[in-house]
Simulated scan of single mutants.
Amino acid sequence: MQLPRQLKDMNVFNAANSFAGQAMKFTRPKLVIKTEDYRGAGMLGTVKLDMGLEAIEVEHEYGGDMPELNREFGTTDIDGSQLRFAGAYQNDSTGRYDDVQIVVRGRHIEIDAGTDEVGAKSGTKYKTACTYYKQTRNGRVEFEIDMIAGTFLVDGVDRRAELRRIVN
Rank of each mutant, 00 (worst) to 15 (best):
Q82L: 03
H60N: 06
E72L: 15
D99H: 10
V154E: 15
G74C: 00
G106S: 00
R71I: 13
R84Y: 04
T124R: 02
K121T: 11
H108K: 10
G63W: 02
R71V: 10
D9C: 09
R164V: 04
V104A: 00
Y97N: 15
D116R: 09
R165P: 09
T46K: 04
E59A: 11
E36K: 09
P4T: 03
A120V: 12
G139Y: 06
D92G: 08
Y97F: 14
M66C: 09
E110A: 11
D50T: 02
E36R: 07
Q101E: 15
E68Y: 15
P29L: 01
H60Q: 06
D9S: 13
Q90H: 04
A16H: 15
G139D: 08
K30Q: 12
N138S: 08
G52L: 04
Q82V: 08
F85V: 06
R84E: 15
A15T: 07
E72R: 12
R84C: 10
I148T: 12
K125N: 08
P67C: 02
T115L: 12
V58N: 01
K127C: 03
V167T: 12
I148H: 09
Y38P: 08
G87A: 04
P67A: 01
K34G: 14
V47D: 06
L49M: 08
Q135V: 05
D9T: 10
D99K: 05
Q101N: 14
T94K: 03
K25L: 07
N17Q: 15
L49Q: 06
V104W: 01
G45T: 04
H108S: 07
G87C: 03
G106D: 00
M24S: 09
Q90N: 06
D146H: 08
N14C: 14
R159W: 05
A129R: 06
V167Q: 13
H108M: 12
K127Q: 05
F143K: 09
Y133K: 01
D92Y: 12
I109W: 04
A23D: 06
L31H: 03
I166F: 10
K8R: 13
V154H: 14
Y38S: 15
D116N: 11
Q6G: 15
F73R: 11
D79L: 03
S93Y: 09
L69I: 09
D50Y: 04
E59P: 02
A161F: 07
I166M: 14
K127L: 05
Y97I: 14
K30R: 13
T94C: 03
